[in-house]
């Protein structure tokens, strides 16, 4: 029997209950068993992690206008999208 728990409206990690074989705690297996929603992934990827500050940075996702040092320029999300196309 599996227990499924909802987080933010989406099914997440399922783990075997006690009446089934002992669970495997091998990390890749746990990652594979993990079922997470896009919102959870984006919340972590876009809002967490190392935030590099300083002159070297061009943009981060949640700041539409981005400060650059004198070598660079002020840009925007739309400019960023255009730069990806060019």
């Amino acid at each position: 029997m599996l227990s499924c728990i909802r987080v933010r409206g989406l099914f997440t990690t399922s783990y075997p209950m006690l009446d089934s074989p002992p669970p495997t705690y091998h990390l890749p297996t746990l990652y594979k068993q993990r079922e997470v929603g896009l919102a959870d992934v984006l919340d972590r990827v876009l809002n967490k992690g190392v935030m590099i500050q300083g002159d070297a940075i061009i943009s981060v996702a949640d700041i539409p206008l981005i400060r650059l040092n004198i070598r660079l320029l002020i840009s925007s999300e739309s400019t960023y999208q255009k730069s990806l196309l060019s």
């Binding site: 990827v45 967490k48 992690g49 935030m51 070297a56 940075i57 943009s59 981060v60 996702a61 960023y80």
Partner: peptide
């Protein structure tokens, strides 16, 4: 992270070029 310790960087973090990254 299966093979090494990975420090995730907030996505997307764009840097001007490699020298800017190495300097940081």
């Amino acid at each position: 992270s299966y093979y090494t310790t990975a420090l995730p960087v907030r996505f997307p973090t764009l840097l001007q070029d490699l020298p800017a990254l190495t300097h940081w």
